[in-house]
Design a protein around this nucleic acid. Sequence first.
DNA 1: GAGTTTGAAACT
DNA 2: CAGTTTCAAACTC
Length: 759
Amino acid sequence: MQDSPVFNYINSLSPIKPVKSVPISQTFNSLSFSSPPSVFTSPHVSCLKESRFLRRHNPLGTSKPKVPSEDVIKVHSSEETLADSTHAHHNSSKLEEENTGKGISVRDASIELSREHIKFSDELPQALKYNCGSPGFDPPPCGDEANSLLELPGEAATDVGYVQEGCKTDSVEVEVHLQEVCQMEPKSEGPDCYWDSLIPDALDMLIFNSPGDAEAFKGLMHKPLASSIRLNEFMSMLPHSTINNGRKMHIVDSDASGSAPEIEDHCSELMTATGTNQTQDNFANVALVTSNSNEKANDQLVSATHRTIRRRCLDFEMANVQRKNSDENSNTGSSTSESDERNVANEKQLLPAKRNGDLQRGILQGIGLHLNALAALKEYKGIQIEKLSSGRQLSLPSSTSLQISTSQEHQNLSLVPVSSERELDPSDNGVQPAEDCSQPSAYMAGEDFNQNSPKKKRRKSETPGETEGCKRCNCKKSKCLKLYCECFAAGVYCIEPCSCQDCFNKPIHEDTVLQTRKQIESRNPLAFAPKVIRNSDSVPEIGDDPNKTPASARHKRGCNCKKSSCLKKYCECYQGGVGCSISCRCEGCKNAFGRKDGSASVGIETDPEETEATDKGVTEKALQKTEIQNTEDHPDSATVATPLRLSRPLLPLPFSSKGKPPRSFVTTISGSALFASQKLGKPNPLWSQAKHFQTVPDEEIPDILQGDSSPITCIKTSSPNGKRISSPNCDLGSSPSRRGGRRLILQSIPSFPSLTPHP
DNA sequence: GAGTTTGAAACT
DNA sequence: CAGTTTCAAACTC
């Protein structure tokens, strides 16, 4: 019987057997996120994976569908597949056999798909290039798929964990398969990003929501991808694939034995249509469902799969959540126009402030995408994002997300204590380690976006709005563990685009990074705080002409320029787009945003543009700043047009209009926005990231309180470490001694700054 | 792309 | 806290 191809085939499809396999549990360490290798402990599995990759890789790798590689050919026919399965059985333990069989079947199916659906391949010209965009997916070096798998600790771990849960074999296989698919995925880089952010939601809708949602999803899918061509097909397929009881796909109904081909087709279409990881996920789900004849098994598998996926793709999950929300709240599948869709996508990333409850999520979402990733994304999206953000996005959200990202890093790295005012959500703990997110993201950014151009080039070429978000350092001696390193200073891991040497600022060295960070913070609690403090909610000051630099914004410590006259980026004030203040010790200050001597803040506002130093860049900057400030003033209003800059928020670095933003220059989140986010209160898995906000308040308080006009306003703020910090603003005023000013502290200020300007 | 300038960060 | 050194970004050629 076993020899019978049919039998084998069925076996391969049967979910039940795999589950039985107990031994596997040992192989796979459940919940051990750090040990992906464990997943691959089994040589057998590894082999399979590799082979798969090769197969897939080759066919897809070639931008155009070509004759399947040898491997592909081998597995190609179902019969052959069966044979393989059988073979596997013979060679491995039962458990492994099971796994193998399944894996093979899945794999085969995939292969067949690729083969049968050449069009698919066509649509995926960049398959090779594309590394799974999933946050959870560690971006393995392009081309080295086998390795990549191994390198994906988070994913693998996740998989493993789930495997143990019961659907082990299938889950694992599926996961693997997904990974493959991910790698295969076609999309252009830009679109990838887009889809990555977008699809998750879509997926959710597809899977969890009613068919109506499917429509929405459809609309979403429309957009930009080349693969969208397939949308119709996909959509037509939806009825079948739409979830039944909220979890299963109808496809499940088709019985395991009979519908393999159909499923495959669907899957292929699905993949084609979406061209995203999520799609893959769906695919996985479908595959799982299909393969299972047993209801329970199906449920388990599906749920397991979902969980796995979700875990892997925290970011996406966030997105999904948000998406769901948005669906519920506002539209439903109505998003048909491209612009809308894009907006939606952007919103996810940028954090739509408009929707209740979305804010937080949005923020989280933004967080979900690692800063690095975001930055990279931004680069790819380029203008698109800007447009979107400017048009619809709230400046606030952007800012928020940005800030969050930065803070997040902080948290991750330094475990900064949350300020009292902010309660951490219990869910925090439950949330996957930030690292997981950040890591993959970081890698992803590097790999996914795999940029050809070195950071330097980018920097030079990058326009203020285009790529500034992403920090790329060039450290050689600091190992990226000192503030010299922009990445480190910004609280982000270095990514591929960085040209640093001996870099320790990577997830791998988290401990080191964390430790170093703590050390630095112990020395200077504000070391990682934003260098520029902006007044978010403060009422426009006297000089706050829209066209002028925000008076409220000031550099935390002030600059110490001697030769640059504060007219170059050497000057942190200038770089941060703020005027110099009393805090500054600069000589010959000509800061276009405001000279320290001339009524510091007011002077700037009076006429920054008139400053001799004013050049186009400066003016532009000033304008941008103004925009920002305006936005900040109305952070909550969703409708506020987001200035270009705000759109940037996706990027880790909020500020610099030109070139890369200064290290830690961060825009302060508006208190209200922040508050709102806090209020959402719903335990959000990503809430932990919210912690990061804590830093915001610190900055914010001063901002709020500060009126440029009020020289004396000093605020006591709590640093992340709980140390007290004085706001730079204090300096402004009064005290002749810049540093002395800081020490003036307003002790009665609430930990959480009121949203309104301090009296 | 290499070299210089600059000022923050780090060190003493 | 001040002075010096180190460092990497910013800038120039």
